[in-house]
Design a protein around this nucleic acid. Structure first.
Lengths: 140, 140
DNA sequence: TCGAACTAGTTCAGAACTGTACCACTTGGA
DNA sequence: TCCAAGTGGTACAGTTCTGAACTAGTTCGA
């Protein structure tokens, strides 16, 4: 490899940070802190606090905080899970879905400004490879 | 476009987070919190607190904290800048360089473990695409 | 030479985050 | 049925982070 993996990681991280920073103001207008946005974005795929914590690699206690904020803002609500009474199933409200979609759009716009510099085929490739790298089976 | 940029951002972010998390214990053994590692890694290219803050997209007050810690650990020292007496030129000590290099190695290893799960051809592709996205010229 | 406007860096108080301890419910074996 | 071990979620207190205000040094025009 011509480029060190650590360098690739670092540059990539910088890219994502700059992109996120570029749209954090728009997220704030939607009433979302960036951490809350991550939770809002993931809740459909991981509708329980414990699952959110492992998926997003953040502490359970932090998830409690973000969920509390998102509930207070009317973006989601907790429901008791019929299958396991210990669990809180998290459900997006209509406002929550709308906010999430607008937030995704803002992030997409910010990232698109960067992605515009590479061919569409590469974007598809990138997505395919990233998905492969994140497959549940990959590494442990 | 066929691929959602927000999804790409999210996948990519997840990948970097998981990789960083995988080597955070090793960084801790070197005496580095992850935020401190970012500072240590960047200080050669951005040897002033203000420059570090903009390069790493973190608040000035936070840089003060991380630099203080890194100085206390003997990884760097502050020197008065001859050209501008307001500035603190940050200089890595030998221990600092050694720690940085070992930290980079740990990060590279962790990332490589992930990259090993996909075909070599995809790794080359991924590297090519990311490098294209990270070109200094891209966007502004 | 002066001082007003900047810029670099720090301090500190309050905000944000999270490790730990905890309670509630579930599971599985006796 | 019982209870010990395990999992889900939260509360709280201690830690970390950071906005705002501040000090130090610089620049520049009159």
């Amino acid at each position: 490899m011509s480029v060190d993996a650590a360098q690739l990681w670092t540059l990539n991280h910088r890219l994502l940070t700059v992109v996120l920073d570029a749209c954090s103001a728009e997220l704030a207008e939607l009433g979302l802190e960036t951490k809350e946005f991550f939770v809002l974005a993931e809740v459909a795929a991981s509708p329980y606090p414990a699952k959110l914590a492992t998926a997003l690699v953040i502490p359970k206690a932090s998830v409690t905080v973000y969920v509390r904020n998102l509930v207070a803002k009317g973006f989601m609500r907790r429901e008791i899970d019929d299958a396991d009474l210990r669990r809180h199933r998290l459900v997006l409200t209509d406002e929550g879905e709308a906010a999430r979609d607008r937030a995704f759009a803002a992030l997409a716009t910010a990232f698109d400004r960067r992605l515009a510099t590479i061919p569409p085929r590469d974007r598809t490739e990138l997505q395919r490879i990233l998905l492969a790298l994140l497959e549940p089976g990959a590494e442990g």
